[in-house]
Write a protein that binds this DNA or RNA. Structure first.
Lengths: 143, 143
DNA sequence: TTTTAATCAGACAAAAATATCTGATTTTTA
DNA sequence: TAAAAATCAGATATTTTTGTCTGATTAAAA
């Protein structure tokens, strides 16, 4: 198995993109998100619950309850979600699993991987997710 | 958690680099590799056993037994090890976990991630591991 | 020939990731 | 006010990954 993000993180990213593509302040139930994205309902619910603790999402209880972004999509980057769910350690650890990999004690691919990692970080942090609205709608087929 | 390779794959890569940095045809016991790389002995043993099936490693039983590369390091690339252990699916699947991510049905970061992924693939496949001998020796401290 | 030290095979165990269930609480709506 | 439908919290279950153990076999060396 080779992975970049955990399932939890992938689902979180998808759910956030989904919500960001909705009309502002529209509340989405866990069930709706689950159906549209084919994510187990309780699982996505848990993930969004945890993101409420980070202040990225807010929830409303009771009938007509659900989740919505508590921050405007123009203020959210993909890296924020990744950080909240998976953390950023992987952007600081050796791709080959060696310990103490650093410029002073580099692994055989330290430099090359470092550059790639920086580009990946940049990819996740250069654009805010409001830029992804159209693409998300197309991908998800919510048109 | 964010990961690029599984532990199994990281250990496999380290062990192969270790063996490639030894004198040609020198046999390394699982215990030696375990000690030098701080990998659980039985685990690295299992990994190397499985790599014998791919023809990358060969084993010798009995006292003075152990493992050595069955291919010259100048014929092995990191991607070969990755493929043998983790497989290459991640180089063909969506970083956000969306299904059917393709140029015709792209996710919001399809193009950008595709480029990065290609560079990562290139990093793992452009150089053979004989080029890493010195760096490996330095990193591992077997001088 | 016996002891020693290694792989090998397969079962087993532990930990982490992923997923589900249950029941309490909340809030809208009939 | 009662029913319905949602979050929320916490326990539980399942699956995958990671790691360990045991015993059989092999081969070198005493």
């Amino acid at each position: 198995m080779t992975v970049l993000f955990s399932k939890k993180c992938e689902y979180g990213l998808q759910a956030i993109l989904y919500m960001a593509a909705q009309e502002e302040d529209r509340i989405c139930s866990a069930e709706e998100i689950s159906n549209k994205l084919s994510i187990p309902k309780e699982f996505v619910s848990k993930i969004l619950q945890s993101l409420t603790l980070n202040g990225i999402v807010e929830s409303k209880k009771g009938k007509t309850g659900g989740f919505k972004l508590s921050i405007n999509p123009s203020k959210i980057k993909l890296i924020d979600i990744v950080e909240a769910i998976d953390g950023l350690e992987s952007f600081n650890s050796c791709v080959l699993g060696f310990s103490n990999c650093s410029p002073k004690n580099p692994c055989p691919v330290h430099k090359e991987w470092g550059e790639l990692r920086n580009k990946a970080y940049e990819m996740l942090s250069s654009e805010t997710i409001d830029k992804f609205k159209e693409k998300t709608l197309t991908k998800i087929g919510v048109l």
